[in-house]
Write a protein that binds this DNA or RNA. Sequence first.
DNA 1: GATCCACGGGAATACACGGATG
DNA 2: CATCCGTGTATTCCCGTGGATC
Length: 390
Amino acid sequence: MNIEERVARRRRSDDGPHLIRSYDALSPAAHVRDPDGRGSTLERLLDHLEPAFDGDLPSNAYVWGPKGSGKSALVTALFSELGRVSRDVRSSIHTTTRVDDTDATGFAYVDARGTRTEFGLQHAILDALLDERVPKQGVGGDRFVELLEERFAESGRTAVVAIDHLGEPETFPVGTVESFLGRIPESIAWLAIGRTPPEDREVQAESTVHLPAYQEYVLVDVLTSRASQGLAHGAISHEELRRIATWSGGDAHDALAALFGAAVLASEAEKRTIDPETVTAGMEAVPRPSAAIGQVLALPENRQRVLRRLLDLDVTDHSIGTSAETIAADESLDLSATTVKRFLYELAESGVLRRTRAERTDGLGRPPSRVEPRFPTLVFRRVFDAAYGR
DNA sequence: GATCCACGGGAATACACGGATG
DNA sequence: CATCCGTGTATTCCCGTGGATC
């Protein structure tokens, strides 16, 4: 038992058994150190990356599969370990022999969510690749290419960078990465991660790794281990976890979102266990199809504030226009109705909200439409309120 | 001085409907 | 009957401005 677990145990026993031990352990957006049930894919990735361990550069690769198939879980776990090892190697070289670090391949991970411009994505890649601080303003994109050449091509350093969540509505396609890192192909290899099949891509990677959706019984294992981390012992039955897995169709994101939502509801009702009705309610708070909660949480803060207020509205009888006005009336938001309206349209465009045409009321002009959440509402509410207060 | 970017505002365009027109 | 037109909204698109950083 490590210190973290000991402290957690003491905190728990202080004020009696709580239903929820850790929301993080249940969150679809948080990834565990050691993902379940992906051993063979992990081996394939290691095979692919193996040249890097001898100082050679692997080819570029594309990891793809549907939402909730464990792509991010696997790659983040793998790259954080690789990054740790390569740092160790580098520091031991520095301290013992004082030769340069050119034969230690670096590993870096970048989440393309959270960058909204091409410049921003390039900056994030560079920032992950270099130890130094990379200026974000007052410099042009050309400077980034110069930096790449100086720090890598000219010094002989090499690195593999994983770039997650490419090709989503709000992120850039693989081609953007290729045209940036393709400037120094001898020094940096990329591992792109996305959902679309490789044959649909304009840029072909030399290798591809496919992750299909989870098998149901594997997903039950994932849920079981997350529940044992995040919930009090015996808080939910195996039956219910299996029901969630079946309902989700192998989508781990949606399954965890449903479990998380059920836990929130049970906790708010001060229950000690999660009963079947609550599980059902948890599933109902996850629209299908659902946008990934990570996509929502990567939005700029003001968009998230708009979404949070939208949840408190009875959206069903509001047009986009009136919803925007109601939301903008909130002084603390400090946004005009025009801007809120534009946000709502943009969010609908990117799949975070769904627009539905309302039945017209006055028969004049183009009929209004309304928006409804297309993301796990209970997860978002809980995480947002915890982060920004309410 | 250069450069990036979030906002706000509003112009331009699309759409729905009823009524007029050929 | 098929189209066109006018009106009123909804939706999309674009650009100037100002703050911030280097």
